[in-house]
Design a protein around this nucleic acid. Structure first.
Length: 190
DNA sequence: AGCGGGATTTTCT
DNA sequence: GAAAATCCCGCTT
């Protein structure tokens, strides 16, 4: 077994974000192994008014400036967590927000945790964190290892990827840094 | 299908 | 003190 190659994360988030589409996340929780496929992402860069890292390092955003492949999990709206994968070189504050995933294994468990069925279990950044049990305790966790592991997949062709502006932000709204697998039913919205 | 408001608390000004 | 990389519910078309 050769260990997977994560070097594609050591680049700017705008380039890593589409590359993460189709990659698999393996979550071990409550004695189960859940597998999902990433179907929607957004890039956040240091030179980007919408990014938490825009105004420099703080105790909250410290992780974004760390090595690629670590998780940046933040708490928002008093209730929700969102999960990012840190990208680029150490010292650069950038990350890719995971906005939606498609269950491959363990869909019934995810539906039960969320008390929702079908796409509603994982078609949003906070929804998928709730479903997969991702919270502050995983902030800074290296995605190379369990209990939340990234399994890289071959790059999807450009023809399978749709690019749009990002969702839910008030600054830099026009930047086309949201990426999703075209026609995938688990995408958060059109 | 689409809009509007409320929930709830961390983080930063 | 205000905003926040969201979600859910109820109401109106």
């Amino acid at each position: 077994m050769s260990s997977p190659d994560f070097s594609f994360l050591q680049t700017r988030s705008t380039k890593a974000a589409p590359r993460l589409l189709g990659c698999v996340l393996e979550r071990t929780v409550a004695g189960r192994t859940i597998r999902v496929r990433i179907v929607e992402t957004e890039a956040y860069d240091q030179q980007d008014a919408a990014s938490h890292s825009y105004k420099g390092k703080t105790s909250r955003t410290d992780i974004m400036f760390g090595p690629a492949g670590c998780l940046y999990v933040y708490f928002t709206y008093g209730m929700y967590y969102c999960c990012n994968i840190v990208t680029d070189q150490e010292g650069v504050g950038s990350a890719v927000l995971i906005r939606a995933v498609e269950p491959l294994e363990g869909a019934a468990y995810l539906e039960r945790v969320r008390d929702k069925v079908g796409v509603e279990a994982t078609n949003g950044p906070a929804k998928l964190c709730q479903a997969l049990g991702i919270d502050k305790t995983l902030n800074g966790h290296n995605i190379r290892y369990g209990p939340l592991r990234l399994i890289p997949q071959p790059s999807l062709g450009a023809s399978m990827i749709t690019v749009t502006p990002r969702i839910g932000i008030s600054k830099a709204q026009e930047m086309p840094w949201r990426f999703y697998i075209t026609d995938n039913p688990y995408v958060s919205r059109r």
